[in-house]
Every structure is written in structure tokens, then in C-alpha cells.
Design a protein around this nucleic acid. Structure first.
Lengths: 338, 338
DNA sequence: TTGTACGCGTTATCAA
DNA sequence: TTGATAACGCGTACAA
């Protein structure tokens, strides 16, 4: 049982340094407003006491927290982890702290997390995708909390975002695939109901089909949850379709890797019998064999730019501008002629 | 320019409901202490105003935050992401919120993040591994913040942890490998300087060698940063050793996957020419070809149990007990006879 | 350059 | 069951 000395406060530091609390506060927040000697005394007292400012009190008095919240579907998905890591590094180097929360793709949970982060005093929020209950946007407007969306970019959208055009990116890949002669196409997609990125990618394929004179309704479409195992099961389903597809698009690399594994297990040659195409270009894509053809998304760049944009907005009060980042086709070895 | 109505406070709700702030506070925190009719009026007012309590003020007045901080090396590593996801789910279902911060394996950054989370009022902290400056533990004790360590388990340690015995786990695998007849061993390790898990795994191999009558100094040891590319480069280095190893242990699956890829690129057969062994059993391990032999770590179980332990401690005030979780050898296809 | 004093929004104690 | 009120620790006019 150690004798519990109480946590030191500003007042304790002030007493110890023989100055007022106001001076200590200034010494911390505006060092050049206080005389050198005074500052030294204060710093010494802070060090001796092991003082660190109370966040709650500070937030209440200053009415800002230097904290930015980020809400993602799940940390278990490498793409979000990577984007957030870059986002955080950017914030950190500008004196901001990131608070993360995850939603498991549940809109209710997202709303709850938004309220929680706002209550915690987040100065701004980073959210994934455009689609959510308008009431949430109203709430954020009412609370005067700036919001930046990411992972999607729609020039026509009213809310600013830092992201890429999911539809156009997938369309470009589909055009490539169709250009190679593929006609019987399939798509293994993440669940589209609450996920505007997934549905935009799906639209991209249909548009490419229509533009090439194919009937978009012939696309063999299967929706599934996120996961390697899920991708494998969906691949089975897709291949039972008659006529069977010669090219299988996947909404993300994880699904594609599952499909690829199942193809090997079934003795189906890739890309000999069927081509498999991913989306995201996570590390996994280069490691599987054959290496996965996919759409590269600059996750780190996106996270970094989102961080820069938010910091600038908070500092200078300038409007948040939409920023588009660009995807790129990565043609590896799972795509071949039909 | 919408007219900015101010953010509602407890006082606003009280006025609107025609009661005192004390009653509103109780209606929120101890609903059964207030009359049904009063409660309804208060809830109505809360809904109409869109009120949500100010976290800072609450923390200051209540002297707790229902928040638990977690500090990990990096979110980009799937093992931490997965463990934290489970940890968070457990906290959430008990009314606690998780705050994450990451350190990029920098002790200085970790210390900074610890102070930041404590200042934010974290009721407890989850940290990875045992090894850190004693001054940090002193600080946490002084601030009266409970700490639970994880990802490691040492029965002799003074601080409670929820984790597994890194050394014993690797030793078990090494015994298996040696038992198959391997004598020329190599280890590609994560950097051991600030990472007690990495050095424990290394010790495990040496102990198995000594126990089997081998000279532990013959272990070909290479240290590298985290990453697939880094694993590949380290594999090159290890294979130039003379005599070249017949079995290459890797400190984690990501390094192992890099080694595996490089082996394929070099035309080195696995496990024909050399065996490769990973650690962690992340999804990657089942997806590569040949599937990776590795040590399974129950990351989700570990995260969940850590969450349970911390919640119980905070609620009941009982001491934090050490909890060991168990690893398991997963013999897939990259390990064969020498 | 420094100090005084008030207010931030909530919880908790004590009375009523 | 409810209300008045004193903390909680800090930032910041304003004054000196």
C-alpha cells in the first residue's frame, strides 16, 4: 500500500513555482508571453511534480481539444488500418490527436460512435463514405463539428471528401477485361446495402458492360460478407452459374484471395480457366500465387491528404475542399484472355 | 449560413423539462431514482434539444470516464488490429469506450501516448509487453491508473498480464523442427532491442537447441524491420550463410511470407530445399502457397479476456489477475524433413 | 510581464 | 423524490 499522493493540478504547480495559475497556464500554452526566468521556474515545478494537464478541464475552458475523431467500419481490414495510420501520423505532426472508433458496418453503431466522439469534444470528424441518415449530418451541423468524408469521391456530392471514384475505378478495370475478350462476367461483392463504395464498384462494371454493348443484366452477381472464407464460398456459387463466367471481379482483394484459393482447391486454373480480379491492392495481392491483378488504391496518400485538409481547415478556418486521389490498374497474373 | 443555435447543456434540458439540473443528471445516470413522469419529461426534453452530455465536464465532476486506453505499436499489423477489435467489443458491451493510440515501436512515443491517454482520463490502460522504463510504471502508479499488460505472459513478472509465453511457444515449435532432424537453423527476427516478445521468441529457439544438445551459437540470426519485403531481403541474407540452413524460423508470419516469396523467386523449393516457419497464424498464413507452418496465437481470445479482466477490476475493485492463453502449433506445408 | 476572478458543464452532497 | 449548491481543473478577459 503506497501512500497515494494526489494528482498535481495547475494550482499545485503555481504554488510550487511561486507564481499564479494564470502564469503557469501561459507558460504552457504561450511560452513566449512569459519571462524566461519565470518559465524556467514553472517548467521545473512541472517536472518535479510530474504534472500533466487535465484534459477535461482544458477542453471545457478552451472549448477545443486538438482532437480529431475517425470512425471506420473495422480495424481488422488492412485498408482502413493503413489509411488511418497515415492519417494519424499527419495529425500527430501537427499537434492533433486522433481518436478512432469502429462500427462493424452497423449504421446504428456509427451514429452512436459519432455522438460519443462529439461528446468527447472532437474538433472534427473523418467518416467513411457518403451514405448515412441525413439526421446525422444535421446533428453534426448543429454541433458545429466539421466533417470530412473519405474513401469515396463524387464530384456532385454536397459534402467535401478526400477519396477516389469507386465507380470509375472499377469501370476502368472492367473495360480492360472486356477489351481482352471476356463476355461472361461475374462479381463477388461486399454487401451493398449500407456501403456506397461497394455499390459504386458494382455500378462501374455494369456501365462498362453497357458501354461495350453487353447486357448488364447478364452479370452474375453475388453478395457476401468480408473475409477470405466468404470469398471462397462465393466463388463456388459463382462458378455453378450457367454459362460459367470467364472473369470474376471481386469487390476487394480479400474476397479475391478467397476465390483464388478455392480455385486452386478445385483444380480450376487461374487465369487459364478463369480470370480473377481484385480491388484495393493490399499486400496480400502480391503474395498470393499467381499474383493478383487488382486496382491500386493509394490508401496512405488518402489518409495523409485527409489529415492535411482537416488540419488546415481547423487552423485557418478555410473551407474544406474536395480532393480526388487516383487509382491505378495493377495487371499481375490472375487476368488473362478468356 | 444557418443560424447557429448553441449546443444544449444540462441546464437547457432542465429548464425545458421544468426541473433542476440535479434531476436531469439523475434521470440520465440513475434512472430508477427519479419518478416515472419526471423521467419522461426529461427524456422528452433531451430528445427535443438533441442534448448529449459534455464529456469533459462529466469527467471532471465524476472523476472517471468509462474509458480504457490501449496503446499498440501499430495498427498496420493485423495481429494488433484483431486483438484490439475483440478487446473493444468486450469493453463496449460493458459500457466502456476504448481509446487507441499507436507508437510505431518508439518508446518515446509510447510514453507520450501514455501521458496523453492518462490526461484524457483513461480509467485504465492496456499495454503491449512488459519492457519499458520503470519511470513510466511509477508515473502510472502515482496517477493511480491500473495497467494490464498483454501479448506476453511471464509467470514471474510483477505486473499482471493477459498473454502467452512467447519463449515457450517458440521453443515448442523449435523442438518439433529439431525432432524432424533439422540441425542447421536460422531465425529471421523482428528487432529485439525494444521488443521483449521478439527476444523471448529468439530465446525459445536457443533453449530448444541447447536442450537437444546443439550449440545455440550456431543459430544463424538476422534481425529486420516488419514487412513482407523485409522478410524477403532477410531470407536472401540467411541463405548465403555457410552452411546454409535447412529450416528458417521467422519471428512473425509477415516475415515468413516474405521469405516464402523470395524462395519461390529464387527457385528454392519449400519445404524440399528449406523449411520456413512462421509465428502468429494470421490469415495470410493459410492463403500463401504452400500454406505456412506456424504457431497459432489466439489473438481474439486474448483481447476479449483482457477486456473482461479490466472491466471486472474497474467495477469490483478486485485485483488484476494474470491470465495465460495458449498457443498451438499449426503444421501446414512449409515444414518438412531436412 | 504577471495576477485576480469568473465561467465552462457536470456530479454529488446535503436539505427539504 | 427533488432542488440548491459546492466542487472539479483550466483558460482567459481584464486589471495592475
Amino acid at each position: 500500500m503506497t501512500s497515494q499522493r494526489p494528482i498535481p493540478t495547475l494550482q499545485d504547480v503555481a504554488t510550487r513555482a511561486g507564481v499564479s495559475t494564470a502564469t503557469v497556464s501561459r507558460a504552457i500554452n504561450f511560452p513566449d508571453q512569459v519571462a524566461q526566468v519565470t518559465r524556467d521556474k514553472v517548467n521545473a515545478a512541472i517536472a518535479e511534480l510530474g504534472y500533466s494537464p487535465n484534459f477535461g478541464a482544458r477542453a471545457m475552458a478552451a472549448r477545443r481539444t486538438n482532437t480529431i475523431g475517425a470512425i471506420i467500419p473495422t480495424m481488422e481490414n488492412a485498408i482502413f488500418a493503413r489509411g488511418l495510420q497515415a492519417f494519424q501520423e499527419e495529425l500527430r505532426s501537427n499537434g492533433y490527436t486522433m481518436l478512432v472508433a469502429s462500427t462493424a458496418y452497423q449504421p446504428d453503431t456509427e451514429e452512436e460512435q459519432i455522438r460519443s466522439l462529439v461528446a468527447r469534444g472532437a474538433d472534427a470528424l473523418l467518416l467513411i463514405g457518403y451514405h448515412r441518415d441525413p439526421a446525422i449530418y444535421d446533428f453534426l451541423d448543429a454541433q458545429d463539428v466539421p466533417v470530412l468524408l473519405t474513401w469515396a469521391f463524387d464530384p456532385a456530392a454536397t459534402r467535401p471528401s478526400v477519396g477516389f471514384n469507386n465507380s470509375a475505378a472499377m469501370q476502368e478495370m472492367a473495360e480492360k477485361v472486356i477489351g481482352m475478350g471476356h463476355r461472361r462476367l461475374a462479381l463477388i461483392s461486399a454487401e451493398t446495402a449500407q456501403n456506397d463504395r461497394a455499390s459504386a464498384r458494382c455500378d462501374g462494371i455494369r456501365q462498362a458492360m453497357t458501354a461495350a454493348g453487353l447486357d448488364a443484366d447478364t452479370l452474375c452477381f453475388v453478395e457476401t460478407k468480408y473475409g477470405i472464407e466468404e470469398g471462397a464460398a462465393a466463388f463456388d456459387e459463382v462458378m455453378t452459374h450457367d454459362p460459367s463466367p470467364t472473369a470474376v471481379f471481386c469487390g476487394n482483394d480479400v474476397l479475391a484471395v478467397g476465390a483464388l484459393r478455392r480455385a486452386r482447391e478445385r483444380g480450376i486454373a487461374v487465369p487459364g480457366d478463369v480470370s480473377i480480379i481484385g480491388f484495393d491492392d493490399i499486400e496480400l495481392a502480391q503474395v498470393v500465387y499467381p499474383a493478383l491483378t487488382t486496382v491500386h488504391v493509394p490508401h496512405r496518400e488518402m489518409g495523409r491528404k485527409a489529415g492535411q485538409a482537416l488540419v488546415k481547415h481547423l487552423r485557418d478556418g478555410t473551407a474544406l475542399e474536395p480532393i480526388e486521389v487516383h487509382t491505378k490498374l495493377v495487371l499481375r497474373n490472375t487476368l488473362g484472355p478468356p
